[in-house]
Computed example of a mutant assay.
Amino acid sequence: MAADAPPRFVNRLLGWAPTWFIARLLLVSAYLLGGVTKLADWPGAVAEQAHFGLYPAGLWAALTILVEISGPLLILAGRLVWLGAGMLGVFTVLAAMVANAFWTLPAGADRFMATNAFFEHLGLAGGFVLVALVARQAR
């Protein structure tokens, strides 16, 4: 076995048929839940967009719900994965810039937390690129 080869149990896990679906479900679960929650609480969804200064808030709420539901469904269905991943990746970067603009905050705990959240969101966007790459390779 090569020095960089994964252990047998890791190979089994990665080769297990449901692993690909479960990994995608874990990646998109917050978006899917967020979209369904916003859909169930339309006034709250509109208020959230207004809170971030996005107007017309109703339009931004509708677009957010559309992306947060359709993007995950495309990824989970394995159809147009590149589109679903692209939608969620762009959405995630834009949302991070709006909600976690750490560069506008003074030094301190709030800036520290916003910086962490911003870069966590960039990591998620990278995960969507990887999902699109894996899906393309699997074709």
Rank of each mutant, 00 (worst) to 15 (best):
T19A: 11
V90Y: 04
R111P: 01
L124R: 11
A57E: 00
L76K: 01
P6T: 00
L88K: 04
V10D: 02
R79T: 06
W82K: 04
L39R: 10
F21M: 11
L122Y: 03
L26N: 04
M1T: 08
T64D: 12
G44D: 00
V129W: 07
I65Q: 01
L13H: 08
A5R: 00
P106E: 14
W16C: 13
A85R: 08
P106M: 06
V36L: 15
G86A: 03
V36E: 03
L13W: 13
L88F: 04
H121E: 12
L80V: 06
V93C: 08
P72K: 00
H51P: 02
E48W: 13
A99W: 00
F9A: 15
W42F: 12
F118L: 06
G108P: 11
Y55L: 13
Y31R: 05
I22G: 05
F119W: 12
F119E: 07
H121L: 08
V36K: 12
A50S: 07
A96W: 02
A50N: 01
T104L: 14
A109R: 15
G127H: 04
F102H: 10
H51Y: 14
L59E: 11
V46F: 12
W42H: 01
W16Q: 07
A95R: 00
F52D: 00
A47S: 11
M97D: 07
L32M: 02
D41C: 05
F112C: 07
M97N: 14
A107F: 14
V36C: 05
A2V: 04
G89M: 00
K38L: 01
F112D: 15
G89I: 00
T92D: 12
T37D: 15
G86I: 09
N116E: 11
L80Y: 14
V36M: 13
T37N: 14
A61F: 00
A30V: 10
V90S: 03
A138S: 14
G71V: 05
A30Q: 10
L74D: 07
G34C: 02
A117E: 12
T92G: 06
L124V: 10
A47H: 09
L124C: 06
V93R: 01
Q49H: 03
P106G: 10
W16F: 15
W16L: 15
N100V: 05
L63W: 00
A62Q: 00
A135C: 07
D110Q: 15
G84T: 04
L13F: 15
F91L: 04
V10A: 14
A30L: 08
W60Q: 12
A135V: 06
T104Q: 14
T64C: 02
V131D: 03
A99N: 11
W82V: 11
E68K: 00
L32E: 03
E48A: 15
K38T: 04
A107R: 13
M97V: 08
L88D: 02
V81F: 10
E48L: 15
A107W: 02
P7G: 03
V67Y: 01
I65R: 07
W42D: 06
V36S: 03
L39A: 15
A117S: 15
D41Y: 04
L39Q: 05
A23L: 08
F128P: 10
L94D: 01
F52H: 08
R79P: 06
S29I: 10
